[in-house]
Design a protein around this nucleic acid. Structure first.
Lengths: 166, 166
DNA sequence: CCCAGGTCCATTGCGCGCAATGGAATCGCG
DNA sequence: CGCGATTCCATTGCGCGCAATGGACCTGGG
């Protein structure tokens, strides 16, 4: 046998964890969609509401740090939540650069209807809570590795200001 | 301690595997971006090229089944690959409903430059190949559960044609 | 007090993903 | 053979994600 395949081809689609994660996230989104439609939310909007249900009255920046999203994504998303009557967006009085996001009564009320979502997803996953918790921890480790790497390397640094490694 | 938290709140963002997967996929995309920029590809375009490097001359439908994407996503993506000179898109002569995607010489040649991508990602993940293979298998199990569920349930069936459960 | 630098949000442009719709080609049943 | 059903791809509309840019605001050194 003169090796019919070139070892374990790293460029083979089905070998790649990344593709598995990528396609699984899309299937998860499709699974969430009919559940969240009843709440009038998309999945990223649902994530923003999760943060607000935990801690009301947060800035766009703080929201972005929790969700790992930037203002280019959040600004239009929050405007849609506002026009849906779920949140209010107001400039901070003490620091007008910031915009504070606050739940409306309607937004707070939506939480009760959201409580049936996680159990439905758990069931659809076909896995146990323990398995999912274990997976979460392992994937988190990868996310942290990617995250710390992305924070350091990219700065092409125009010049001057070498305060990190100097 | 009168339980300061309400058990293990399923609506808590950081409890959810789904958010971990969602945010990790975005970080992966950001990690791939500078690597793939050298090839002139986005991540979904890279995935399509992976399939074509495995098996040239495939239909849009076959590509969609491998990548779990539909024509609404693939048609414009493939047009961009075509205008980049990497593939050709031609109607099948025997069945003109189908469009066959074939690599150009330039598209085949890009494979060599792509070989450095998987090792870079492996390193950035901070994990061993064994750990990633194990994760892949576990996430695949969830993907299969979601997939089989999505295939059955949704048909709202206008009427008639009850061939599955009838 | 002034203003250079930094922070925070908004905007723009592009490429997905996907639901929904439509048109052209093919298939299959009578 | 004829015609309704099905298959396959293209198009449209919308909501992300994100890089890049810009503007308003704040802060700190002089």
């Amino acid at each position: 046998m003169p090796l019919p395949k070139k070892r374990v081809d790293a460029l083979h689609l089905n070998e790649q964890l990344c593709f598995t994660l990528y396609s699984t996230v899309h299937l998860l989104n499709r699974t969430y969609r009919p559940l969240l439609e009843k709440l009038g939310l998309t999945y990223p909007q649902y994530l923003a509401m999760l943060v607000l249900w935990e801690e009301d009255d947060v800035t766009v920046k703080a929201l972005g740090e929790r969700l790992l999203l930037d203002s280019g994504t959040l600004t239009p998303l929050l405007k849609r939540l506002e026009s849906a009557g779920l949140v209010k967006r107001e400039r901070d009085v003490l620091d007008e650069r910031q915009v504070r996001i606050r739940l409306t009564t309607s937004g707070r009320g939506l939480r009760a209807k959201a409580e049936c979502v996680p159990p439905s997803i758990l069931e659809a996953s076909g896995s146990s809570l323990e398995e999912l918790q274990d997976l979460k921890a392992r994937v988190l480790a990868i996310r942290e590795a990617l995250s710390s790497r992305l924070e350091q390397e990219p700065p092409p640094a125009p010049a001057s200001k070498r305060r990190k490694t100097g």
